[in-house]
Design a protein around this nucleic acid. Structure first.
Length: 109
DNA sequence: CTGATGACTGATA
DNA sequence: CTATCAGCCATCA
């Protein structure tokens, strides 16, 4: 895994609009890695850059990936609510995704 | 090399 | 709706 691959992932995550969420698998797919959801999760677990909106990344079913009650869970939940995302019992309602919007890959940040 | 593990996913019952 | 199961893939003992 080169840092270039990681950079793609960061770029995708940074492109997620506030109040919107994406799944690990979707982030991986948009970054060009269809079957690396776990790898993306691993990246976030250890190499998350400062300022990255990692809290906008959830499981495919819209639930927070952390165990309920854990510190990470609390932090992510708070951050999501703060951005206006509706969360019910650890699950995000009306999950809005950016899907295949190519403008995502427009001008470099 | 082998097997276990994990911020995962999709199919099935 | 929840519960299992089988893939998936990088990392580590």
């Amino acid at each position: 895994m080169d840092s270039a691959d990681e950079a793609k992932v960061w770029k995708v995550i940074r492109a997620i609009p506030a109040g919107t969420v994406l799944g690990y698998g979707e982030v991986g797919r948009l970054a060009g890695f269809p079957k690396r959801a776990r790898w993306v999760a691993k990246l976030l677990a250890s190499k998350t850059p400062a300022g990255l909106p990692w809290h906008r990344v959830l499981r495919s079913d819209g639930k927070i990936a952390f165990a309920e009650g854990s510190s990470g869970y609390e932090r992510q939940l708070a951050a999501l609510k703060k951005e206006g995302v509706e969360v019910r019992n650890g699950r995000v309602l009306k999950k809005r995704v950016v899907t295949e919007d190519e403008h995502l890959w427009g001008p470099p940040v």
